[in-house]
Design a binder for these strands. Structure first.
Lengths: 217, 217
DNA sequence: CCTACCGATCGGTAGG
DNA sequence: CCTACCGATCGGTAGG
């Protein structure tokens, strides 16, 4: 009664509110550390106690910053889904005079960029199992994205740019399976440059691993 | 002292023993159902109570068949690792007169076959987070396999079969990232035939998505 | 005396 | 931001 607590009915409480508490211990910090822990140990294997230890304060103190464990997960999944949705929207709205293949190539490159820039959030998204309402909602959004990516691939096959001897849906799954596998090993600031990686993925996906023949010769 | 109990210090107890109990309720059944549940919900999110409900008997009854939850995980991870190790061994021992590229192509095809034939076990392996001794041991074995696959790719690049304009380690990660992504969607008995899939993966990986030019014309 | 279980509960720890 | 707790459930085991 005495304390002006912000209400937090599990899943709501989206207003950031004014900065408060010690600097570096705000919602963003809690979220970032939480996502890192979720990725290292798995969401279910990570307790709020683990997160508290990581942050250097008590479990209860976390609930001053965030309403629930599920809220942290939801924020991260939304981040990843919003970014990936933007990529797909680009491919559709910036259609201009571009061929389907060009739009697909652009989508692959931009997807790699998003995976690199938002690696922790995207990693979490790709591991979601549907164990809660938050996870089920994220899975639905992700399936929608996958369907639109498959449409892009089908368009590129129909236009004659991509090989038609493999089922377009299989092509789509393998292509974005390769792209998504980046989250398993790519670490920002590592030995592989992001732009170089984006090139490598596009090259391998579209042109294959086999050494190109050196001008007939 | 009086009772001749089989010992099972968490992680051992590998002897199958003679068939006993009601048919369909043996160790193999428990393991299969457990792995399915682990994949659907995640290992940590699955309780032995969940597994008991799934099997139609009580939680305690499970411990008549298996020593621990961790043992079920270990059995499945060993299945996947043994199969994948055999694939890599083949590529090395059956070297004969084969080029590195031929050995790599064979490895990719055989890997797809193993992923298809042992999808549940391999899925579990690919999701291991290192949260226990069992998981850490599996991760070590997997890293060893990845290193040997990277050696194969490097050999194919060195021999001149594969493109050298992309870092071989990146090539290796992307190639097997694509292969491994199969576990996310492939289901035995579905619309995609296993042999067709094996061809599709090899074709896309080595020759790329781009439609092959129709004889210069 | 065996197997295949059961109802109940152990000591700890989860999210809140 | 803490101490002190809650209702529930965890993996595993007791006696019968």
């Amino acid at each position: 009664m005495a304390e002006p607590e912000t209400e937090h009915p599990t899943g709501q409480a989206s207003e950031p509110g004014p900065r408060r508490g010690r600097p570096g211990h705000d919602q963003e910090t809690v979220l970032r550390r939480a996502v890192d822990l979720f990725n290292r140990q798995g969401y279910d294997a990570t307790s709020m106690g683990d997160l508290a230890r990581e942050l250097g304060f008590t479990k209860s103190a976390i609930y001053h910053h965030v309403p629930s464990k599920a809220h942290l997960l939801a924020e991260a999944l939304d981040e990843a889904l919003d970014e990936l949705t933007a990529v797909v929207e680009e491919a559709v709205t910036h259609a201009d005079g571009l061929s389907a293949e060009e739009r697909l190539r652009h989508t692959v490159r931009r997807s790699v960029e998003v995976l690199v820039a938002h690696q922790p959030a995207v990693t979490l998204l790709l591991r979601v199992r549907g164990n809660s309402d938050v996870e089920l909602a994220a899975q639905r959004r992700r399936r929608e994205l996958d369907a639109r990516l498959a449409d892009l691939v089908r368009a590129a096959v129909a236009e004659g740019s991509l090989r038609d001897d493999v089922d377009p849906d299989v092509v789509s799954r393998l292509l974005f399976g390769m792209v998504n596998s980046l989250v398993e090993w790519y670490r920002p600031g590592g030995s592989v440059d992001a732009a170089v990686l984006s090139d490598a993925v596009a090259t391998i996906a579209f042109d294959g691993l086999t050494r190109p023949a050196p001008h007939q010769s």
